[in-house]
Design a protein around this nucleic acid. Structure first.
Lengths: 225, 225
DNA sequence: CGACAATTTGAATCAGATCAAGGCCCGTGG
DNA sequence: CCACGGGCCTTGATCTGATTCAAATTGTCG
């Protein structure tokens, strides 16, 4: 179903072995992923959560017959890998070279520090729920143009870099990934980009770079109605 | 957009006053809601979470111009009201008379028992994330018939009651609510029900009751492809 | 019983998917 | 250095499924 089945290995395993890290709170074990490499697969056991520190990862689910739903993209600062009952419900792979920090917050654990960890995990999970609710709204109620605008707005706020002639945003993911995230087809995503360009809201110096000329109008376009 | 805008008041306030409950772990303060009554609104402050013990509640978000996205339905046993940064991102109102137990798990709190509470909250939030990911798949990738079948399947597993001639499921929510949950229109939901009926998979004794004749085929219909 | 609300059904329309080229970018090898 | 090849992206034409508009039907509750 996925071209990269072969690259699928548990990077998490790798880092279990490295030097015996202090298992105290601020142990900052990290994982490095090259593009296309998987951190974990749907169905794997595992209860670690991770913070992306560099690069971008993709969280997705696939159906038997290859239909993919991208659940989220993980940018630096994002926390990914929320397990359900000690098990992964998504694949996680890297879109770019990426580095993730393994967080010492896992669920069922006793002893000192467990309280803070659980509280942290809870806070992170609640934040994630908020994001997902927002995304539910996008998938349930927005048109293709609204979806693509919403997507760009979110990216703009997260990683937009100001420039004399606009704010630019790099897109490490393909049109197909964006489509799978937004519940559309690549052609539709492409047409939405073109529409935004023709409306003078964005420019597309290359397919992987967006220059936002009119953030206000982009925001408006992202709203339902 | 909802007939019950006027009934919107903070039931949570009500129960803050009742008899000074022990603020220990197993304090089981409860809220009662009548149909249409709100537990909280989008934007309210509040960090309590609740377990539905009776009835069914609806969690939804509305856009300025009335478009509604139902984020979830809460059935007995479900935990609802996950706050983000001490704030609600959805409305919560009752579809039937409902009763909710206020859980002693809130986020930022110190002292004895806090650890268990945080762990519980985290576990509940992670579970919710899993559900939502499933729902993202539904909204992003499924056809109207697949969506309605998925919805019925989920309900079947949760609240289906066996009977000589099939499993029956009561639907306390309107077609409009189902549509808002599944990202469809009421007419489309209705047509999907009709299709399932004509396929011999379900019966519709009344609009609010479904008898599932062929759960296996219902499951199949719920899958993508 | 009667009226209103909710659901179902029908017909027309439209947005996005699908099918099919064509163009662009970039790395590879002659 | 430039020609070649293969992705990926864009554009065009058509088709399909969901929406929209409209009306009939059912069910509910005073």
């Amino acid at each position: 179903m996925h071209t990269a089945i072969d690259t699928g290995f548990l990077a998490r395993e790798q880092l279990t072995k490295p030097r015996k890290k202090l298992k105290r709170c601020s142990s900052t074990a990290a994982v490095k992923l090259s593009p296309g490499q998987f951190l974990f697969h749907q169905g794997d056991d595992g209860d670690s959560i991770y913070r992306v520190t560099q690069g971008v990862v993709r969280l997705s689910r696939v159906t038997e017959k290859g239909r993919q739903q991208v659940v989220a993209f993980g940018y630096p600062g994002d926390i990914v890998g929320f397990p359900v009952a000690g098990c992964r419900n998504t694949d996680c792979d890297a879109l770019t070279s990426a580095r993730l920090e393994i967080l010492p917050a896992r669920l069922p654990r006793e002893g000192a520090g467990a309280e803070a960890e659980a509280a942290f995990l809870a806070a992170a999970a609640l934040f994630e729920i908020g994001n997902m609710q927002e995304h539910l709204m996008t998938l349930g109620r927005k048109s293709s143009r609204e979806r693509v605008s919403s997507f760009l707005c979110a990216l703009l706020r997260r990683i937009g870099r100001h420039d004399p002639d606009g704010i630019h945003v790099d897109l490490p993911m393909s049109r197909a990934d964006i489509a799978d995230f937004l519940g559309l087809r690549t052609e539709t995503v492409s047409r939405a980009f073109t529409d935004l360009r023709e409306a003078g809201i964005i420019e597309l110096p290359t397919a992987q770079r967006v220059t936002v000329l009119d953030p206000v109008r982009l925001d408006e376009t992202a709203e339902v109605d």
